[in-house]
């Protein structure tokens, strides 16, 4: 069967999955398209390391049959940085290694709060955090912990990750009055 999928804006035509029909979207992204951002840590939807957007919906790519992604648009952690408009000098954001792009505010916040140690959970955390902030721009500490409970980290004890999400929220939304953003 042939699969056509658009990943981070680039369309990949007629990817042949004859070798492994039944393979996951994670496998397709990593092994066929060479995108190493989505990570394989459990392959059963219990860790969130492989989180991506499938047609704008946050999913664990290990639980998506690659055939189900046919004709879909996928956005991975690699597609985040280009979202940020504006020159580097004014945004204060770090550069994406090997490119001229600037990091997304969520990525930058992860650096600024020391939320990264081994970093294996980080791509999934960044994607999940960005998804959360798109739905809930000013979450509380407890809301971050509840909404991101599907992403495991073994190094950090989570606190600096939560701080990163809250910092990114503040930077993206601007300081909010207590009423704003609380449904």
């Amino acid at each position: 069967m042939d699969i056509t999928v658009t990943v981070n804006g680039k369309t990949h035509d007629r990817l042949d999955d004859e070798d492994g029909p039944g393979e996951s979207l994670l496998f397709l992204l990593r092994e066929r398209l060479g995108l190493i951002g989505p990570k394989n840590a459990c392959e059963q939807g219990e860790c969130g390391s492989c989180a991506v957007w499938l047609d704008g919906v946050l999913v664990n790519s290990c639980l998506v049959l690659s055939a189900q992604a046919d004709g879909c648009s996928v956005r991975t952690v690699e597609g985040l940085a280009s979202d940020t408009a504006g020159p580097l000098e004014t945004s204060g954001a770090s550069r994406v290694p090997g490119t001229s792009g600037a990091l997304h505010p969520v990525q930058q916040a992860f650096l600024d709060t020391g939320a990264v140690q081994c970093g294996f959970c980080t791509p999934g955390m960044v994607v999940t955090a960005t998804d959360l902030l798109e739905r809930l721009p000013r979450p509380s500490d407890a809301e971050v912990r509840r909404e991101m409970a599907g992403n495991l980290c073994r190094c950090t004890g989570y606190q600096q990750i939560v701080e990163a999400v809250l910092l990114a929220a503040e930077r993206m939304a601007g300081p909010a009055s207590p009423e704003v953003g609380r449904p």
Partner: peptide, 23 residues
């Protein structure tokens, strides 16, 4: 001091190469 990690930008952008990413 607490300077930012130099492997941080690669780790948050998904481009840091782990042993499982080698080919």
């Amino acid at each position: 001091t607490s300077p930012a990690r130099t492997d941080g930008p690669a780790k948050v952008s998904g481009t840091f190469v782990y042993s499982s990413d080698l080919s």
